[in-house]
Design a protein around this nucleic acid. Sequence first.
DNA 1: CCTTGACTTGAAGTCGACTTCAACCGGCAC
DNA 2: GTGCCGGTTGAAGTCGACTTCAAGTCAAGG
Lengths: 140, 140
Amino acid sequence: MDIAEVAKLTGVPASALRFYEKKGLIRSVGRDGARRRFAPDVVDHLALIALGQSVGLSLDEIRSMLSPGGEPNIDRQLLVAKADAIDAQVKRLQAISLGLRHAAACPAPSHAECPSFRKLLKAAAKGAFDKRWGVMRRSK
Amino acid sequence: MDIAEVAKLTGVPASALRFYEKKGLIRSVGRDGARRRFAPDVVDHLALIALGQSVGLSLDEIRSMLSPGGEPNIDRQLLVAKADAIDAQVKRLQAISLGLRHAAACPAPSHAECPSFRKLLKAAAKGAFDKRWGVMRRSK
DNA sequence: CCTTGACTTGAAGTCGACTTCAACCGGCAC
DNA sequence: GTGCCGGTTGAAGTCGACTTCAAGTCAAGG
């Protein structure tokens, strides 16, 4: 597969594929002239990278779980730890979602006077001040 | 309150407070010599900012919800939309968490052979390729 | 009086994950 | 041959949210 094919198949832009290769996250298996050729399993590899990113791992962390043996060697403890972190994140997000809906439905003229909004604010403050947890990133 | 007091109270570093003020997210109420003085309600204001960030808003977006009247004027529709987005995010995170736990418990020698891990991978690929949704951000 | 420490400023630097750029090469269609 | 397409490279740029820096001001303490 050439780079365009992988890009089309996975949605990962060619520039990102080159970037990943430079970083050691994926490998190309030889060249066709100057052009990289990729083995089909690079798609799974990219899926793994996407998965790692979706749980908040940096590319460096992902590489460290990947490279030792070449094939994925993933620490099961880390998996559980990540799952726990995600569950915590889920709890916070659910609380916020609930708070937002309350606030949206609140009849107070200004949100400043809405009790549930003030409660939400306090909760957000507790969480968001001084520690930075996982957070949603901008979509675009 | 002076800047250090606000910083200590909220955990937001003084540099960030100055940055927020420059950006128009918070206001100082006069000076004591050269030093800013803040009204106590800046704390609520900062909580609001933290809340906004925790649901994935940029500082610019937060300011746009804040500045028109000076006091928070927040679109209830936006609130509901954000709540919906968060709920969707929660669903995805729960699926991933479940997948991670399955994979951690999976007895296959390599994760490559674990069916639930491959399923998780496929799901992650579906989600993460080509569309970038909200994502957890690095903690540090 | 002099140092110390907390504040002030604008400018520049940082971090992660890419994207974009300039310059170049190899094939293929015309 | 000559465009043009689609790859190649390393270097530089982008974005958001800050942080850090240099240089300066000011009040209090020894």
